[in-house]
Amino acid sequence: MAEAKRERTERRRGFLLALPSFAYMVLFFAIPLIIVLVYSFATRTSTGSTSLSDWNFDAYRKLGEPIVRNVVVRSVILALVTTVICLVVAYPFAWFCAHQRQTVRNVLLVAVMIPFWTNFLVRNYAWRILLSEGGPISSFTEAIGLGETDILFTKLAVVIGLVYAYLPFMILPLYASIDRLDRRLVEAGRDLYGSGPQTFRRVVLPLTMPGIIAGSILVFVPSMGAYVTPELLGGGKETLLGSYIVTQFLTARNWPVGASLSFVLMAVMLVSTVVYFRSGGKNL
């Protein structure tokens, strides 16, 4: 009796402790999310306002139109390229980190963390200066006889910016999974006459897969939705999904299309999260 009563009190205490933030999250997160969902089925009137009385899938059908499809395809390609580059660069780096003495390892990890904490806008702006016409990179390539490089406002500039922005997101989960790797299993692989590459493919790669998937999601999803980087380094020419959505709201005033695209973005994120948890990952 007393036990049951105490448990009830405990439950009530927990609920009351969670209540303020729970209420906050429902009001200022869950309800906004539902509003976006509702809007994505609404109709844009000829004046640019939104009519909620006529429900349909028009906004989603618009996703099949060439303009929108091109934006989606381009975003997926650029985000994939960014993810692959990050993975190829980060895996050896994380491996290198994990095989250093403790002090060196800590220094390297802090060195990776610092840019992650550094102001995002400033980091993008730095590349705007580096890549500018007659700027440091251009002068450098000219000095070594490669001629001027003029890559600002191209896809390449956007990819460089995205890799720069999200590389730490790839390194840290990879490092965590490589660090957790049981070295004895690698030894066992070698004892069973596995060649280096075989051991890597059959033992190391599967064991570090959660890190690879987590890192890829953490790079791919924000790249898809990137807004600041393509605006600053792509000059608004190389529109990605993120910037396209912003335009739908701030200039084109087509809220239903903007809402439906935001939901597509959400869906990408949710599907990748499910993939991650299915693959045996524990926490992002």
Binding site: P32, L241, I245, V246, F249, S262, L265, M266
Partner: peptide, 8 residues
């Protein structure tokens, strides 16, 4: 994604 959050 922060764009989605902004829209919301």
């Amino acid at each position: 994604p922060d764009v989605t959050m902004a829209v919301m």
